[in-house]
Amino acid sequence: MHPSDDPGWAGKGWSMAFTAYFILLLIYLLLPLLIVIPVSFGEDQWLQFPPTSLSLRWYRSYFSDPGFIAATFTSFWIACVVSALATVIGTVTALGLSRTRFRGKSLLYGFIIAPMVIPIIIFALALFILFNQLKMTGSVAGLILAHVVLALPFPVLIVSAALEQFDTTLERAGRILGATPLRVFLHITLPYLAPAALASAIFSFFVSFDELVIALFITGRWDTLPKRIWSDLRLEIDPTIAAVAAILIAITLIGITAGELLRRWAMARAAN
């Protein structure tokens, strides 16, 4: 080893401390998930860890509860609509931002990204006041609009990153080879952006699917899945919640992993 490569004892100490810190942080983040999954497979009447015996009792209880199923479907289709709207609007916005120069562009960019940094409770409260004025509380359209705003930073950021790597000479090549601007967009630009847009759609879906605070403020009488879980938790702590949580964890894990793989693929392909 080259002498200057040796971090020395002090360096080794720091690197060990960082590794320990990282492991502790992972445990802290993952422990609740690791507990809820075995609990969901328990037989006991109450939430208990470790479970005394295993069964699918609470999964059956979830699938046979019409309230839970209805809330799940509501959340699912709202998330699908939000995902589609946010992806289309976000992709068009990213295209517009990448191809124009104007004063206040970075301000507009910041404005679109704002929902990522504004505390969600502030956003929810503001929406509540606004929707009250507009008599929109309790409307599905209102919740969809709010979720689209909340999800929009994902498609804008992901598609912008892909566009930054995009070689616009490809569009020139398309034109000189005989394609109109519209066909260049459909045959060259859009296929290039497809993985980034699909990743955006998945992330946007989950922004809406597991969103609780805004739903609590503005949905009124009907339930989304997170809202239903929340109200169940307040009334009684029943292991059905653990089963729902386990299902949610599984779906989210698969979805976000797929989204992240797509995003990385989009970036790697752009780098070629």
Partner: peptide, 9 residues
């Protein structure tokens, strides 16, 4: 073109 500009997909 200088950088080939083949359509990557």
């Amino acid at each position: 073109f200088q950088n080939y500009s083949l359509f990557p997909h």
